[in-house]
């Protein structure tokens, strides 16, 4: 298998049947996988912050850092490989948080809300998700089968 590692604030799309797209150590960041079962095109985004308005300059240099610039780029990049929006299977993981009783630093929750908002506006449905909690997650998409595996300390399960 050809493993493509997607770093924080990065994304990858592929139509290589031998490729696995993987991203490690999702904390408050969110991993989004998309997959077209007909075109056999897959994509994975690992974004870290909700809105590009925090730093338009950074969003320009690395759009995958933010939800509102990364998600459109992920979808557009997959379309370029022949994927179609209506066929895409979307799965989501991450948005965890540290022990924070007072909710001072709730980026995970804000990331997830930003994602829901952009999906709602664009009529995108989430097929499955595993978000929140105090858990670090690894996410892997098999481009050929569309299978998405979610790994935590507890083990590995299909998402």
């Amino acid at each position: 298998m050809n493993q493509v590692v997607v770093d924080i604030a990065d994304l990858a799309v592929s139509n290589d049947a031998d490729a696995n797209l993987v991203t490690f150590s999702l904390g408050s960041c969110i991993g989004v996988t998309i997959w077209d079962p007909q075109a056999h095109v897959g994509g994975l985004l690992h974004f870290m912050l909700p809105e590009a308005s925090l730093s338009p300059e950074k969003a320009k240099a690395s759009p995958a850092m933010f939800c509102d610039t990364g998600v459109p780029l992920l979808f557009k990049s997959a379309y370029q490989l022949g994927a179609a929006k209506e066929r895409l299977v979307v799965r989501v993981a991450g948005g965890a948080q540290l022990l924070d009783e007072k909710g001072i630093f709730n980026i995970g929750k804000r990331n997830y809300l930003a994602l829901r908002k952009i999906f709602w506006k664009n009529n995108v449905l989430i097929a499955s998700e595993d978000v929140g909690g105090n858990v670090s997650r690894t996410l892997k998409l098999n481009v050929s089968s569309g299978e998405v595996m979610l790994k935590t300390r507890e083990g590995e399960v299909a998402l």
Binding site: I8, G27, S28, S136
Partner: peptide, 25 residues
């Protein structure tokens, strides 16, 4: 440390199990 753990930079299985001290902020 909290910022980097939260984002998930190089953390382990322990990463999300630390407490944020709001008073320090």
């Amino acid at each position: 440390d909290i910022v980097c753990l939260q984002i998930g930079v190089g953390g382990g299985d322990d990463a999300m199990y630390y407490r944020i001290d709001g008073a320090a902020m």
